[in-house]
């Protein structure tokens, strides 16, 4: 009973954190006048769970060899990533004012770069993160370290051929400390994912490639935590297909390709914040 209560309070806490990340992400994008709100909002619960409930890291020692790794392969969602990194203690929240601005002290670029504390590799060209994550997973084996590598991909990104190259590689090398998550928000930049190039049957594809596949509601904090914390499969890499809603939490952004990569106006921003209270 006690542990269930604790879990309930932890879930509640993480849900609050996710909401805060959503508000803050929109604030960053609004202030910068550009950015990617849709995918930041869809991934906020997953990223909140990772940084504040799953990943092992020490923000004072960002290069600690034993740290768990996180790769934001859908690199356009930096507003969300930087907010999480600041909250996690990699840098001060006040530094976020540099977001997408020239001479940014921490290189808070539109897409991530390792000059920013807590970022492992540059992403932004879709399809590369899973391979990079797998390379890190291979290194962990050589070093005898038991960290896990989490790679967050967009659903549209899965249309990139390299993702499937990496899918085969991770199975070949039995890289079971690799955890991939697809933020399956069903919406790309100019189309719905299914109209652009349908991924279905998505779970079957990954299973056929040899992955241990889980399917969750990407906005259900309990399900997210259970999936991310599940012990590794004895030999298979893990795929978590997380059903999400693009623009989640802001009614007028939800499910709309048009909110992939534009900043809200002042009025829209205020309206969005109200919905995220």
């Amino acid at each position: 009973m006690e542990s269930a209560k604790l879990a309930a309070s932890e879930i509640e806490e993480l849900e609050k954190t996710a909401k805060e990340l959503r508000r803050k992400s929109l604030e960053l994008i609004y202030r910068a006048g550009s950015g990617h709100p849709g995918g930041s909002l869809s991934a906020a619960d997953i990223v909140a769970a990772l940084y504040f409930g799953v990943l092992r890291y020490n923000p004072k020692d960002p290069k600690d060899p034993a740290r768990d790794r996180f790769i934001l392969s859908k690199g356009h969602c930096t507003a969300l990533l930087y907010c999480a990194l600041a909250r996690a203690g990699y840098f001060d929240e006040s530094d976020l004012a540099d977001y997408r601005r020239i001479d940014s002290k921490l290189f808070l670029s539109g897409h991530p770069h390792p000059k920013t504390p807590g970022v492992e590799i540059a992403t932004g060209s879709l399809g590369q993160g899973l391979s990079v994550g797998h390379g890190i997973a291979l290194a962990s084996r050589l070093d005898g370290l038991d960290y896990r590598v989490y790679v967050l991909m967009g659903d549209g990104e899965v249309q990139e051929g390299q993702v499937w190259e990496a899918a085969m590689s991770a199975v070949k090398f039995k890289s079971n400390n690799l955890v991939a998550i697809i933020d399956y928000n069903k919406v790309c930049q100019d189309n719905l994912t299914r109209d652009l190039k349908d991924l279905e049957p998505l779970e079957d594809k990954w299973r056929a490639f040899g992955w241990d596949v889980m399917r969750i509601d990407g906005h259900d904090m309990g399900q997210i935590l259970d999936a991310l914390r599940a012990p590794p499969h004895p030999e298979k890499p893990r795929m978590i297909v997380a059903d999400t809603v693009k623009g989640k939490g802001v009614s007028f952004m939800e499910g709309k390709p048009s909110w992939h990569g534009v900043a809200p106006s002042e009025e829209e921003y205020k309206k969005a914040l109200k919905e995220l209270e």
Partner: peptide
């Protein structure tokens, strides 16, 4: 053999895998 990774005919995946190994201190 433990430090040799034949990635198959997938050069893009190989290059990024190498990059991942490098972030963990390897010289790929």
């Amino acid at each position: 053999p433990s430090r040799f990774f034949n990635m198959g005919i997938s050069e893009a995946d190989m290059v990024c895998t190498a990059a991942g190994l490098a972030t963990a201190g390897k010289i790929p």
